[in-house]
Simulated assay, not measured.
Amino acid sequence: MRRAESVPLAGPFTRIYDPGEGLPDAWYINDHSLIRDYSGSWHLFGITHREPAAPEDERVFAHATAPELHGPWTRRPPCLTADPDYGETHLWAPHVIAHEGVYLMVYAGGGYEPDSAAINLAYSTDLVEWTRRGDGPLFRDGYEARDPMLLWVDDRWVLYYCATEDPAGGHHVVAYRTSVDLEHWSGRRIAFRSDRAGTVGGDTESPFVVRHGRHFYLFVGPCGAYADTEDGYTCTAVYRSDSAYRFTPADIVSRIPAHAAEVVHAEGRSWITHAGWGQGGVHLARLNWSAGLSV
């Protein structure tokens, strides 16, 4: 008998952090990253700005801390500010990992030409003070290459990010590059090619890849044909593959009502986040790995 494969499905979402709480105006968190530090405390980093959405004016990264994943969360001073002398025109989509006793943050620093946008790297020993890589961006790509995330696969690092098939436009893709030392990177390759084409936006934003069982799962959005609908913004598509380097539109197994979703492991369970413009902060739901198909 053929074994049923796992399908990720989200439970109810609960807001865990409101960046505007106690302030005179509402604020948002968009693409973000959650990490537990070496002492056991949780940290949240993310795109932030006063509502309404102003992506070209997103120039600082929010920072908040909590003793537990569900909170209570405390707002901290911004951890990084766009540096024009480094070529940064904005700060988008931080992804933070712990590696060999320090913390690394990959993020989109923008640039003055959308077909040559920078993916940058910063280091920290305490998740408070950050130092940019001295040699400049890790690499540049387009169109407005952004939303990087790091995953260790087999014997190398894989850095996934949102781009277009050609740096000047074309089909939206999840591109990736590989490295063994986080400094020297391969040329770009394509992990996923959408049926949709264009420049800004598209349905390959916020790529996040996790391994569960014998498969890899790509979380990405807004959801394809739903991207232009009222609720398409809060829709993450999930694709399942036996390879970390190859996903196709036919591999879709689930849709989750979330934007800029990140998968977090805590308390022996999987959780999924939701945030974005007009969403009132960061929300969290249990991620259940069910057998079957739900698209």
Rank of each mutant, 00 (worst) to 15 (best):
P84K: 11
S241Q: 03
P94Q: 05
G278M: 10
G280L: 07
G201A: 13
A93K: 06
P77Q: 02
A53Q: 08
F61I: 00
R196L: 15
T204W: 07
G232N: 00
L80F: 13
F208G: 08
E56K: 09
N288E: 15
Y233K: 12
G110F: 10
I97R: 11
Y143N: 05
H32S: 07
L138H: 02
T81F: 06
I272N: 10
D37F: 07
A53N: 12
V180I: 14
R146L: 14
D195W: 10
A285M: 07
V106E: 00
G281S: 03
E21I: 04
A108S: 15
T65Y: 03
G213S: 05
F61L: 14
R132S: 11
R15E: 04
D181H: 09
F139C: 03
P24A: 04
H212Q: 14
V96F: 07
H274L: 14
N288D: 15
I190A: 06
A82E: 10
W27P: 00
L44Q: 03
F208C: 14
P12T: 11
E165R: 13
A82I: 04
P207S: 06
V209D: 09
S6W: 11
T229P: 00
T236R: 06
G232H: 03
H283F: 14
W277N: 10
G22T: 04
D57R: 14
T89P: 02
S194Y: 03
R59T: 15
D57H: 09
D155E: 14
D203A: 03
I252Y: 01
D141L: 01
D31S: 02
S194K: 05
P249L: 02
W130N: 11
Y245W: 13
T164S: 10
H63L: 00
R140M: 09
Y123C: 11
D85T: 13
H283M: 02
S41H: 11
N120W: 00
H172N: 09
R255Y: 02
H70D: 14
G11Q: 01
R188N: 07
T178W: 08
R146C: 10
L293T: 10
L34D: 06
A197H: 09
R255L: 05
C79T: 08
S33Q: 05
R36T: 08
G134H: 11
A117W: 02
D251E: 04
H212T: 01
T229Y: 01
E21D: 12
D154V: 09
P207Q: 05
L138K: 01
R286C: 12
P84H: 11
I252W: 02
H95Q: 15
Y160I: 14
H32F: 01
Y176T: 10
A66N: 09
C79S: 14
A244N: 08
R196S: 13
W152M: 11
T236N: 04
S194P: 06
V209L: 12
R15K: 15
F247A: 07
S206R: 04
D115Q: 15
H63M: 00
G11P: 08
R188L: 13
C79A: 15
S39F: 01
L138D: 00
E144N: 13
A145E: 05
R156I: 00
C79Y: 00
M149R: 08
A122M: 06
R255H: 06
S6N: 08
A275S: 15
P167H: 04
P148Y: 08
S294T: 11
G11C: 08
L287C: 07
P114F: 09
G46M: 02
L23F: 08
